[in-house]
């Protein structure tokens, strides 16, 4: 009889437990690093952008350009293609790159083609509606000297419940004047992801 009660109890308890679902929210700092699934995350995006831009700004192309042209170079971020196994939000990565470039103070940064259209519309609007002393004239835009392009690639090796995720981010800085590649940056990230075989 005791055995019977135990069997029934286990059955019902397991039924009830499988139906349990609780949501818990904990606030945390935006720069805290947490890896949940092993996929590309905000920390990867921030780290890669920071390290690659730091590397780019420490290379000779910057001093060479300033020495020859006597001005700080203007850079524009072109396309960064996601060729990886994951749906990476490339826009946040590009935004990180832009932020690092602008905040370095060592290069000037021009708006991307999408942003430019909005600004041009506003300028046209100013022509009609703004007072003469506050109006900004057309044809005064700063042209970019270099374009930053890149791609994110991955190689995934999988065995049973283990995965090795290898990310390679390649960025290239191309001179707008003559298509020369003045800087090639590469950042690699490798992660071992182990998924539990069991759960409660």
């Amino acid at each position: 009889m005791n055995y019977l009660i135990k069997v029934l109890t286990v059955g019902v308890v397991s039924l009830l437990l499988t139906a349990c679902n609780m949501t818990k929210v904990t606030r945390m700092g935006a720069d805290e690093s947490i890896d949940l699934s092993g996929a590309w995350n905000d920390t990867d995006s921030q780290l890669v952008a920071r390290e690659m831009i730091t590397d780019a700004l420490s290379r000779p192309w910057l001093t060479n350009f300033s020495a020859h042209r006597s001005k700080t170079p203007a850079v524009i971020v072109g396309s960064v293609r996601n060729l990886s196994h994951e749906h990476i939000n490339v826009r946040t990565f590009v935004a990180e790159l832009e932020r690092e470039l602008v905040n370095s103070g060592r290069v000037e940064f021009v708006a991307s083609s999408n942003d430019r259209n909005e600004i041009r519309d506003e300028r046209k609007d100013q022509d009609l509606h703004a007072s003469e002393d506050t109006r900004n004239a057309a044809g005064q835009e700063r042209g970019a000297d270099f374009m930053l392009q890149g791609q994110i690639n991955t190689i995934i090796d999988i065995n049973d419940n283990k995965q090795v995720r290898y990310y390679q981010v390649d960025l290239t800085l191309v001179s707008m004047a003559d298509n020369r590649k003045v800087w090639l940056g590469q950042k690699k990230i490798k992660k071992l992801v182990e998924n539990s075989k069991f759960r409660y």
Partner: peptide, 20 residues
């Protein structure tokens, strides 16, 4: 995403499957 989570063998669910 949910499939990735539930792919792991659940002990409680398996007890349920064996008893019910």
């Amino acid at each position: 995403k949910v499939i990735q989570q539930v792919e792991a063998i659940s002990i409680s669910e398996n007890i349920g499957a064996v008893t019910v």
